[in-house]
Computed example of a mutant assay.
Amino acid sequence: MTILSPIRKVFQGTATRQQMFSLFDRHAQRPSRWEDGASALYAGEWFEVTEAAHDYMFEILPPLWIHGSMFAIREFLTGSLTSVFFALGIDGVDRRFHGYCDLSDRGSTEAMRLAILERECRPVRTMTRDECLEHIWSSTTEAYRGYADDRWPQPVRGQRTVVLCGEPRRAFHKLLSDLTDDEISAKLPVQLRHLPAPLVA
């Protein structure tokens, strides 16, 4: 399985409460679920939530800690990894976010906060290829996503797959990382299909 650890946005738009709970464990189908802690898989993931969802999570259990406009959930996902919720003012609008931070790294919450601010303060709405792929994974139901098993070549086993529709009326699995630009466009919601890619210096 490909191990992910950079800070990254995994869902475009504001997640509903139902979507939030689904995104909390979007790697639940991984083959090694009961064999590893998967801290590196979840660490760095973040997405926007509603104010109501943010407040619900604040009230459901006493927070582990509160630092200014952020708080950490008392229950750890795995090891020292837990949910941290952020209330941030961006372009004059109060917004709420959830991120997975490894609290063994004292700088992880501040790094997450700064990464969210940097990403959301872009003057033009953009999506990188990686953000497109993460959104596709996050928004695809479990019946249409999975992991490469022993039917796949050894080097790619454990990598994420999604179901595509072929011709005529034939569904097939393809590695998420191998989707073409046209396949990505077809899998994205209409409102996200034509966002410009960010300029790379």
Results as ranks from 00 to 15, higher is better:
residue 45 E to P: 00
residue 186 A to L: 09
residue 139 S to D: 15
residue 24 F to L: 14
residue 89 G to W: 05
residue 186 A to K: 07
residue 5 S to Q: 15
residue 32 S to N: 15
residue 147 Y to E: 03
residue 62 P to L: 06
residue 132 C to Y: 00
residue 3 I to V: 15
residue 80 S to Q: 09
residue 111 A to K: 12
residue 57 M to Y: 04
residue 45 E to C: 12
residue 89 G to Y: 05
residue 196 P to A: 08
residue 107 G to K: 12
residue 109 T to C: 15
residue 152 W to T: 09
residue 199 L to G: 10
residue 166 G to I: 08
residue 170 R to S: 15
residue 151 R to V: 09
residue 152 W to N: 10
residue 131 E to F: 00
residue 142 E to C: 10
residue 8 R to Y: 02
residue 60 I to D: 09
residue 49 V to N: 00
residue 144 Y to M: 11
residue 196 P to E: 06
residue 176 L to T: 03
residue 126 T to Q: 12
residue 23 L to M: 07
residue 183 E to T: 04
residue 163 V to I: 14
residue 194 H to L: 10
residue 128 T to H: 01
residue 42 Y to G: 01
residue 114 L to Y: 04
residue 131 E to T: 01
residue 140 T to M: 08
residue 121 C to Q: 10
residue 61 L to M: 12
residue 169 R to K: 14
residue 77 L to H: 06
residue 71 F to T: 00
residue 121 C to D: 10
residue 9 K to G: 00
residue 117 L to D: 00
residue 118 E to T: 11
residue 201 A to G: 13
residue 64 L to N: 02
residue 106 R to H: 11
residue 16 T to R: 09
residue 67 H to L: 09
residue 20 M to L: 14
residue 64 L to V: 01
residue 132 C to K: 05
residue 81 L to V: 11
residue 186 A to S: 11
residue 40 A to R: 08
residue 54 H to I: 03
residue 38 A to F: 11
residue 125 R to M: 06
residue 70 M to R: 12
residue 152 W to C: 10
residue 180 T to K: 01
residue 32 S to M: 14
residue 176 L to W: 02
residue 82 T to F: 03
residue 54 H to R: 05
residue 147 Y to G: 03
residue 105 D to E: 14
residue 2 T to C: 06
residue 70 M to S: 07
residue 191 Q to N: 14
residue 159 Q to A: 08
residue 169 R to F: 13
residue 196 P to S: 07
residue 45 E to Q: 12
residue 129 R to W: 05
residue 184 I to G: 02
residue 29 Q to L: 15
residue 7 I to H: 01
residue 139 S to Y: 08
residue 54 H to E: 03
residue 77 L to D: 03
residue 169 R to H: 15
residue 160 R to C: 12
residue 79 G to D: 13
residue 30 R to H: 11
residue 151 R to G: 14
residue 162 V to E: 04
residue 179 L to N: 03
residue 24 F to N: 06
residue 27 H to P: 07
residue 169 R to Q: 14
residue 124 V to F: 08
residue 180 T to S: 15
residue 85 F to R: 00
residue 104 S to P: 01
residue 4 L to A: 10
residue 189 P to Q: 06
residue 119 R to H: 07
residue 142 E to P: 06
residue 106 R to P: 05
residue 69 S to W: 02
residue 83 S to R: 09
residue 109 T to L: 05
residue 158 G to A: 11
residue 185 S to D: 10
residue 100 Y to C: 06
residue 149 D to I: 07
residue 84 V to F: 01
residue 136 I to V: 08
residue 198 P to G: 06
residue 88 L to E: 08
residue 149 D to V: 08
residue 125 R to Y: 05
residue 154 Q to C: 05
residue 72 A to I: 02
residue 154 Q to P: 04
residue 90 I to T: 06
residue 25 D to N: 13
residue 14 T to V: 15
residue 141 T to Q: 13
residue 172 F to S: 13
residue 55 D to C: 01
residue 115 A to Q: 04
residue 79 G to P: 03
residue 143 A to N: 12
residue 167 E to M: 08
residue 82 T to E: 02
